[in-house]
Amino acid sequence: MTLNMTSSNSISVTVEYFGPAKQYTNDKSQDNIQLDTDSANLNQLLIQLTPLYNSDFVEYIKKSCGLALNGEYQTLDRTISVEEFGKEVVLTDGSELVIVPPVSGG
């Protein structure tokens, strides 16, 4: 699903979902999200996901999931509020974010 119209002031970001994260997306494995270039960060991307899948999904991502941006695992402060989470992670056109489910051992 693509949100918003593409313009010269926007970028496209691919989001991939795996494992339990897909429960929130009705088994959808990927979205292409358009973000305004003035606010292209992880936090804004999560805000775009909220009306698609609800705020519980964003809270689940913040508390439980790993995040890999362009193949690089992101270390984020999970003690801050959802409203501040990920603001320091800048996204660019063509970025790929993978939402990695929590690992369970046995």
Score class of each variant (00 low, 15 high):
2 T>I: 15
2 T>K: 14
5 M>A: 13
6 T>D: 11
7 S>E: 10
7 S>C: 08
9 N>E: 12
9 N>Y: 12
10 S>P: 03
12 S>I: 12
14 T>D: 06
14 T>C: 08
15 V>Q: 03
17 Y>G: 05
19 G>A: 02
20 P>S: 15
20 P>V: 15
20 P>R: 10
20 P>I: 15
20 P>W: 11
21 A>W: 05
23 Q>F: 14
27 D>C: 08
28 K>Y: 12
29 S>N: 15
30 Q>K: 12
30 Q>C: 14
30 Q>T: 13
30 Q>F: 15
31 D>W: 04
31 D>Y: 04
32 N>H: 11
33 I>R: 04
34 Q>K: 13
34 Q>P: 11
35 L>K: 03
36 D>I: 09
38 D>T: 15
38 D>M: 13
39 S>V: 12
44 Q>L: 10
44 Q>G: 10
44 Q>F: 09
44 Q>W: 10
45 L>Y: 06
46 L>F: 03
47 I>Y: 01
47 I>T: 07
47 I>A: 05
48 Q>T: 00
50 T>N: 11
50 T>E: 08
51 P>M: 01
52 L>F: 03
54 N>A: 05
55 S>N: 14
56 D>Q: 10
57 F>P: 04
58 V>T: 09
59 E>R: 11
60 Y>D: 06
60 Y>E: 09
61 I>L: 01
62 K>R: 15
64 S>P: 07
64 S>W: 12
64 S>G: 10
65 C>W: 00
67 L>P: 04
69 L>V: 08
70 N>M: 11
74 Q>S: 00
74 Q>V: 00
75 T>Q: 09
76 L>Y: 01
77 D>A: 06
77 D>M: 05
78 R>N: 06
79 T>H: 13
81 S>E: 07
81 S>K: 07
82 V>K: 15
83 E>W: 08
86 G>K: 05
86 G>V: 02
90 V>S: 09
90 V>L: 11
91 L>I: 04
91 L>M: 00
92 T>G: 10
92 T>N: 13
94 G>S: 05
94 G>F: 05
94 G>A: 07
96 E>I: 11
97 L>I: 06
97 L>K: 04
101 P>R: 00
102 P>W: 00
102 P>F: 02
102 P>V: 07
104 S>F: 06
105 G>H: 06
106 G>D: 10
